[in-house]
């Protein structure tokens, strides 16, 4: 029994059902393993983790410059900014807001840079339910293509202090 000492020559190859199951399980694990590289090359949704070190103040300066050149309006006091299709966009997270509000075009691709000025934050796009981590000191580049137009919520889903549950913004996508 499992609390008792096994016979002397306990080493033997699996047989019968056990053997069949180990084979099946191993085959399934191979499927699981291959699925990821497959999707990396063929799939449209990948987190490549492209990122660069950046000092928070530098990132803020880049964001301000981006807002200065691309601002198209304001929403609840927050600038609404429309990046050039194919171009760079900046989004900064801080306790407890995102800055600025982005306005994107459907089916255009953007290099969206996200970083934090203080704590770790979350990039959680709803109701699309796409989620990425935002770290201070890292310029996390999401090469993103909105495929469906509409008005999306952006919420923080990494705990960032007592205001965490109020940290939200918008991302607007036009046809």
């Amino acid at each position: 029994m499992s609390i008792h000492f096994p016979e002397t020559n306990w080493f033997k190859a699996p047989t019968g059902g056990e053997r069949v199951w180990i084979g099946l399980a191993l085959a399934w694990c191979v499927v699981l393993t291959l699925a990821m590289p497959y999707w990396h090359f063929k799939g449209k949704q990948n987190s490549t983790g492209e990122s660069y070190r950046v000092a928070p103040a530098d990132f803020m300066a880049r964001t301000e410059k981006f807002v200065g050149t691309n601002k198209v309006g304001e929403l609840k006091g927050v600038p609404v900014v429309q990046p050039a299709p194919g171009g760079d966009a900046y989004l900064v997270a801080m306790m407890w807001k995102f800055y600025p509000v982005l306005k994107l075009k459907k089916d255009q691709t953007y290099r969206l840079h996200v970083s934090s000025l203080d704590l770790q934050h979350g990039f959680s796009l709803q109701p699309m339910n796409m989620n990425f981590q935002i770290l201070p000191g890292y310029d996390h580049v999401l090469t993103i293509t909105p495929t469906i137009s509409g008005e999306y919520s952006l919420i923080c889903n990494e705990f960032c202090g007592f205001g965490h549950h109020t940290m939200a913004s918008k991302i607007l996508v036009e046809d």
């Binding site: 399980a25 699981l32 393993t33 490549t48 492209e50 981590q133 770290l135 890292y138 310029d139 996390h140």
Partner: peptide
Amino acid sequence: LVDPGVGAGWKIWNTSYAMYLAVLASMI
């Protein structure tokens, strides 16, 4: 898996070789 600082190759390699043989163990 959705962090900056670590790349896709690193993420995929470590998830597959490390995890799936442990998964195999649990399935056994």
